[in-house]
Amino acid sequence: MSKPGTALKRTGIALIVLGGLIYFVSGGSEGDNPLAFFGLVVMLAGLLLHFRGRGLAARARSDSVASSLRSSQHTVLYLRSFQSDTSTSLKVLGSGFTTEEEQLADVLRPIGEMIAIGRPGEKLPLPGATRMYASDAEWQNVVLNHMASARLVVLRAGPGHGLFWELRESFSELPPDKFVILILNMKSRNYRAFAEEVQENFRLELPSLTANSAWKGIVDFREPSRVTSGFIRFAADWTPEFLPIPFKVVRLGYNDLRGPMNEALQPVFESQGMAWHRVGRL
């Protein structure tokens, strides 16, 4: 018996291949054959099906007896604004075969299984971190309980009162070597606002980050107004250190950030007393 989501993922890949063949045989962008447009539609449908299959697999993983939420295995708590989720069709299509969150969860798996609060009302959990769900009255206690037991807490910088509460609790409850801030695809003005909030409320000055150059933004599918992505880790006295995610020219839409994220996180692995190993796209 195949695993949940496998059939949809395979169908999605088949549609992507079929759509690509139709597109190129029909002349692609060089011709005016309407079949070329149809080929693009088939490819996009394949990407959406593949993503849904990964969502079904994520739900099965969360529901399984072996889920990190029901076992004693080590965990990594992932905190973020729901705005960061790959929750719209446009974001799904832009993410390719693996989302940023899936790649982050894969890279951090040697430290622990990545877990996160799920968006209320979502029909399928997004692929990546194992989702747990809580009511408005419960979610803060759920976060605090998992924060206390997690091997590592990763907070993706962003907007929102809920995220800022999680940030405050992280600074208050965690030792510095257990907390990392992720800066990913963030506009310059949003990072400045986030850093100013941290400075004002915690008297902690986060590193100044420069915006991506125009050519890098084109190759990396990011706007030039976005700052360099990376992780901020902290020394024993809470002095921050920025660990940039290395820039890679080749972008294939599959595990593009897996290797670069892994390289950036080498000091974090070492601070956890774990051996670091280089990983590739596969």
Results as ranks from 00 to 15, higher is better:
residue 22 I to R: 05
residue 36 A to N: 04
residue 33 N to L: 02
residue 126 L to E: 11
residue 272 Q to D: 03
residue 95 S to W: 00
residue 79 L to A: 00
residue 230 G to L: 11
residue 163 L to N: 06
residue 13 I to M: 10
residue 233 R to L: 14
residue 232 I to V: 14
residue 113 E to G: 02
residue 38 F to W: 05
residue 29 S to N: 14
residue 21 L to A: 03
residue 26 S to I: 02
residue 64 S to H: 01
residue 161 H to L: 14
residue 135 S to Y: 08
residue 121 G to L: 14
residue 250 V to M: 10
residue 147 M to D: 07
residue 97 F to M: 15
residue 10 R to G: 02
residue 182 L to E: 03
residue 128 G to I: 12
residue 31 G to Q: 00
residue 99 T to R: 11
residue 143 V to A: 07
residue 161 H to Q: 12
residue 101 E to Q: 15
residue 218 I to W: 15
residue 133 Y to V: 00
residue 200 E to Y: 13
residue 137 A to Q: 12
residue 7 A to S: 15
residue 75 T to C: 02
residue 72 S to R: 08
residue 263 E to V: 09
residue 79 L to M: 05
residue 76 V to S: 00
residue 239 T to N: 12
residue 109 R to M: 09
residue 57 A to R: 08
residue 92 V to Q: 09
residue 35 L to Y: 08
residue 146 H to D: 07
residue 96 G to Q: 04
residue 42 V to E: 04
residue 102 E to R: 05
residue 99 T to V: 08
residue 153 V to F: 11
residue 197 E to W: 11
residue 129 A to D: 08
residue 11 T to R: 12
residue 30 E to K: 07
residue 102 E to N: 05
residue 56 L to D: 04
residue 70 R to W: 03
residue 166 E to C: 02
residue 56 L to H: 07
residue 202 F to M: 08
residue 80 R to I: 03
residue 248 K to T: 15
residue 97 F to S: 06
residue 92 V to I: 13
residue 203 R to H: 15
residue 191 Y to V: 04
residue 227 V to S: 11
residue 85 D to A: 01
residue 220 D to N: 15
residue 240 P to Q: 02
residue 28 G to P: 06
residue 281 R to M: 04
residue 68 S to Q: 01
residue 72 S to A: 12
residue 35 L to A: 11
residue 8 L to G: 01
residue 50 H to E: 01
residue 31 G to D: 06
residue 262 N to W: 03
residue 108 L to I: 01
residue 10 R to H: 11
residue 276 W to E: 00
residue 41 V to Y: 09
residue 42 V to R: 00
residue 86 T to Q: 04
residue 92 V to L: 07
residue 125 P to Q: 13
residue 141 N to T: 13
residue 99 T to Y: 02
residue 200 E to R: 13
residue 155 L to E: 12
residue 34 P to E: 11
residue 175 P to Y: 04
residue 101 E to A: 14
residue 263 E to Q: 13
residue 51 F to T: 00
residue 272 Q to L: 05
residue 150 A to L: 04
residue 116 A to C: 10
residue 109 R to T: 00
residue 120 P to D: 12
residue 168 R to N: 13
residue 179 F to L: 03
residue 197 E to S: 11
residue 251 R to V: 10
residue 45 A to M: 02
residue 141 N to P: 05
residue 112 G to P: 01
residue 102 E to G: 06
residue 5 G to Y: 01
residue 242 F to D: 05
